[in-house]
Design a protein around this nucleic acid. Structure first.
Ligand code: FES
Ligand code: FES
Lengths: 141, 141
DNA sequence: ATGATACTTGACTATTTTGGTCAGGTTTAT
DNA sequence: ATAAACCTGACCAAAATAGTCAAGTATCAT
C-alpha cells in the first residue's frame, strides 16, 4: 500500500497555502519553490482542488490561490477525494453483490478489506488542514 | 492508496489454507480453483511465504502446504511482510534526516505520513489469521 | 519402476499507474 | 503593453503490477 506523490503533494501544498490564509493569494510558483514540487504538476493538482471547491483562484498578476473554506472545515478526506487519491482495498464494486474477478459471490476476505478501508478513512476524516498547520507550528518552536 | 492483488491473494489463500489446518496439506491447485487465483501466481506467493516460515511445504503426491505456526500467531503484518506488501506513505528513508527529493530537511507533512503509516500498521498488527477464519465461520451460519 | 501430483525456480511480458513534461493559451494588475 | 499567474490538454518515460511460461525436482500410489 503506497501513498502516491499526487496525494502527498496536494496536502503539502495546501498546508503551505493555509499558513497564509486570509492574507494574500499564494502563487503556485511560490509553493513550487518552497516545497520543491514541479510547477506544472502543481497546476494539475490545483485544477482539481479548484473544481472541488477546496480553493479559489485569483487570476492575473499578484494572483494565486486562496482557501475556499475554513481550514478547520477541510478534511484530508476532502483533499484526497478531490485529487482522486482513493483508498481502494478491493477491485470489485462495493455495491455489487458479485465478487472480484466476476465471481458470483464475495471472497473469503472481502469483509476484512472493507474494515481496512474504513479504518484508513477514519484517519482521513479526523484530520483537518487546520490541525496540520497547528501541529506544524508547534513543532517549529 | 491501493492494496495490491498480491497482498490480497496472500491473505485469501492463507485463510483458505488455515481452514484445513492440522488435517492435510492443501495443494495450491485446490486453492487456485476455490479462490480463483492463478496457480502460477500462487506459486510465487507461497515461495515467499515459505521463505519467511509462514508455511511449510510437503512435496510429492498428496503434498501441499501447511501452516508453520499457529493461526493465532500469524498476524496480517507477518503475511504482508513476507510478500513485500509494504505500507509506504513516503519516499524518503525513515532513518535519514534528509527529506524526500534529497532536500536537506523533512517536509511540512512528514510527521503526518508517519502517523498514517502507524495507524495502518496497527490494523495489521491486531488481526491474526485465526481471527479471520473465525469471523468467516460466524458469517457463514 | 513409473506415472501423476505437486512443489521449485527463474525468466519473461503485457498492462496499468505514476509522475511528471510541454506547448499553448487566457486573465488581470501595474 | 507586459509580465505574472492561472488554465487546459496532450503527451511521455519509468516504475509497478499482475501475471505467464518453461523447465525443472521430489514424493507417493500403484
Ligand atoms: S475483494 Fe472483491 S470479492 Fe473479495
Ligand atoms: S515525506 Fe519525505 S520529507 Fe516529508
Amino acid at each position: 500500500m503506497r501513498l502516491t506523490s499526487k496525494g502527498r503533494y496536494a496536502v503539502m501544498a495546501l498546508v503551505d497555502l493555509a499558513r497564509f490564509d486570509g492574507i494574500n493569494p499564494v502563487s503556485l510558483r511560490d509553493i513550487s519553490l518552497r516545497q520543491g514540487i514541479s510547477l506544472d504538476y502543481l497546476e494539475q493538482i490545483f485544477s482539481k482542488l479548484r473544481k472541488k471547491e477546496i480553493v479559489q483562484s485569483v487570476r492575473g498578476t499578484q494572483g494565486g490561490y486562496i482557501l475556499n473554506r475554513k481550514a478547520k472545515e477541510i478534511k484530508l478526506t476532502n483533499i484526497f477525494d478531490a485529487v482522486d487519491e482513493k483508498v481502494k482495498t478491493v477491485q470489485c464494486k462495493k455495491e455489487s453483490k458479485k465478487g472480484c474477478n466476476g465471481k458470483s459471490t464475495k471472497c473469503l476476505t472481502h469483509n476484512l478489506w472493507d474494515e481496512l478501508e474504513t479504518h484508513i478513512n477514519n484517519f482521513f476524516d479526523k484530520k483537518s488542514l487546520d490541525d496540520l498547520v497547528k501541529e506544524n507550528l508547534e513543532r517549529r518552536f
